[in-house]
Amino acid sequence: MEQKPKISIKLLFTDKIIELLALIVFLSIWFLALSGYSQLPETIPTHYNGFGKADAFGNKANILVLPIVASVLAIALTAINFYPHLLNYTVAITQENAEKQYRLATRMLRCLKLIVLIIFTFIVYMTQQTSKGIADGLGEWILPTILGLIFIPIFYFLTQMSKNS
């Protein structure tokens, strides 16, 4: 196994903005879940099918599972960013291209973290709305939207990594 260069990647302005937005959304999901908890009925949707319709129900305490899972994912994606040399790349990493490749990889992970947090915040919000009878699930476009939000940035960044090899 080849050793990739271990270099420190400094955050650029764009990276700092993405991190700030992720922090705001991270705090928002917890605020939303905790502030709306007392207004929830005892039974809430706990799962949605591919068309965004609730198909399983449980205790309102389950609303806290979403911010917990989102937090674990956000922390994991943040931690991985400190070790870009451990990631797999579509091109060979050399001393010459390491900084550019690592920057693209860490920015992709930052974007994905922000997207995951936004998706989970939306699900918490819509679960609250559905529980109160204001909405009827997540909407039929939720699955293609989530898939697009996740895979389009991945495709974009992997394309950029290949171009910048």
Rank of each mutant, 00 (worst) to 15 (best):
N59T: 14
T46P: 02
L12W: 00
H47M: 09
T94I: 02
G50I: 14
L73I: 15
N49V: 09
Y156W: 13
L12T: 15
I93M: 02
S165M: 09
A54M: 14
L87P: 00
I68S: 11
A105F: 04
A105L: 03
I24H: 03
T14L: 11
L32G: 02
D136R: 09
K100Q: 11
L11A: 15
Y102R: 06
R103G: 01
H47F: 09
L64W: 06
D15I: 10
G137W: 10
F26E: 02
R107Y: 10
N62M: 13
D15M: 08
T78K: 04
K53E: 10
Y125R: 11
L143V: 14
S28E: 03
L23Q: 00
V124S: 01
L112R: 06
Q129P: 00
H85M: 05
G50N: 13
I18C: 01
F51K: 12
G148T: 15
Y37C: 10
A92G: 04
P67H: 11
L73Y: 11
Q95F: 02
R103C: 01
C111G: 05
V72F: 07
T130K: 01
L34P: 01
T14R: 11
L12C: 06
G52A: 12
I119V: 15
W30L: 05
T94M: 12
N88T: 10
L12M: 06
L64A: 05
T159E: 00
L86F: 12
L112C: 05
S131H: 05
A33V: 03
G52V: 10
T46A: 03
A76V: 15
Y48W: 12
F26V: 06
L109P: 02
L104Y: 09
F157S: 07
L143G: 01
P41G: 11
D15H: 10
L143M: 15
I29T: 06
Y102G: 08
L138K: 04
I115L: 01
P45G: 05
N97T: 09
F13K: 14
W141Q: 07
D55N: 15
I18D: 00
G137D: 06
I68L: 15
E99Q: 12
L104A: 10
I115C: 02
K132L: 15
P144Y: 10
L12H: 07
L32D: 00
L77Y: 04
L11F: 12
E96R: 09
F122V: 12
R103Q: 10
L158W: 08
L77V: 11
K4W: 05
I134A: 03
E42F: 06
N81A: 02
N88S: 07
Y156G: 09
L147T: 13
G58V: 05
